[in-house]
Design a protein around this nucleic acid. Sequence first.
RNA 1: GGAAGCGUAUCGAAGUGGUCAUAACGAGCCGCACUCGAAAUGCGGUUGGGGGCAACCCCACGAGAGUUCGAAUCUCUCCGCUUCCGCCA
Length: 440
Amino acid sequence: MLDIKFVRQNADAVKANIERKFQHDKLGLVDDVIALDEQYRAALQQAETLRAARNKGSKEIGGLMAQKKIDEANAKKAEIAAMGAELDRLAALEKELAAKVRDIMLVLPQMMDDSVPTGRDDSENVELARYGEAKAPDFDVPYHVDIMESLCGVDLDSARKTSGNGFYYLMGDVARLHSALLSYARDFMIERGFTYCIPPYMIRSSVVTGVMSFAEMEGMMYKIEGEDLYLIGTSEHSMIGKFIDTLNAKDSLPQLLTGYSPCFRKEVGAHGIEERGVYRVHQFEKQEMVVVCEPEESMDWFEKMLGYTVELFESLEIPVRTLECCSGDLADLKVKSVDIEAWSPRQQKFFEVGSCSNLGDAQARRLGIRVRGHSEATEPDRRSNYYAHTLNNTVVTPPRALICLLENHVQADGSVHVPQVLRGYMGNAESLNPHRHATR
RNA sequence: GGAAGCGUAUCGAAGUGGUCAUAACGAGCCGCACUCGAAAUGCGGUUGGGGGCAACCCCACGAGAGUUCGAAUCUCUCCGCUUCCGCCA
């Protein structure tokens, strides 16, 4: 969400930004919103003038009543009451215009960073770098569900029975590996100065609509029947929700949080074989990072956060690449975004395991996340409080993260190599071996 | 879940229909004075949002709606907190 004042003063830049995102149908909205805003301010001024007159008159009535000048007071009352209709009309107009302006402002995309490459859709995203050696072994890498089954580590049949498609039972070593991954990721982030946070797994609709549109909410979020509560689709929602309508002290920034939570998503629609198994599921778990910082620091944090994820995957001995979202694929609220993709030796391609985003002040403006700004000396142009910048990035999301872990570490004999960093969480096991015993 | 009470600035708290919300009073914080320095003391400052070239004006007393010329104050709904009871890890 942009600042209406910014739009007013930089209409051309706002339009150019929209064009670069190939959202030509929104171009007209810029002039529309500027015109509506002008009408709004005109109505506002009229209404305020009338309110000022009413307030003044009402005070006089108080004075007259105190002096027992009842007749004069009654005359004044009638005079003010007569304004009522016009005031109601202006108040309604003011409200209507403000809503119209806001509706458009919610749709106008955030100003992208200059570094965002221009492109229509995800096919034009730009690979930035590769880490690790993306190679295909000289044996056929099995489907991830098969690897898990060979370890007696997954039971999808029972899950379909109890909960339906998109759910899973993880068992034994695979379940432990799942927890190990999360525990390792948690400690990895704590070591880098982040505060571990377990947020609420259900949030109110007012919080949800703060971070996504109503349509998106309906398509993604599970609602608790009879309550104004939704199961979170990502801990980002409840973690950033922590800061809604806050005025933060400068010295409280940056806020560095690493959150753990289960995530629940409807994921409507059919998907291909590679999206089945435990790839696209209704319930998964995620270690997330969220940063709230000073505006001038957000790009530095963006680079750092991206670096952390790359470092994490490198330590897990999983080849990854970073893929920059081009202008047309970049979500409207984002200033810049880079996906982290892990190598799938089975598919011989990379697939998304995380996404690092700088939302600039867009989310902060929408949610009212501000910084108390008193340092006029050092920041002369910043005379009042201002919006913070917010960022978020995935650390890991098992069970999807298990797919790349298993595919990259499965050996020709079917055993699975356990990366050094996870062994402490796996009873010091160096590898997991296929075995047969009843799982039920 | 039942009953009662409460929600006002950074914190505590007064205000129960007007002429005290730049909100009494107390504390904190910032500045100045006194001091070799500090403490103590004294003086001054210290909510947020919006409109306007400006003067200045509007809005906000948990949120929303209502009554009224006028609402922190009265009514209703919702949210939160506290205490007691019940229930349950």
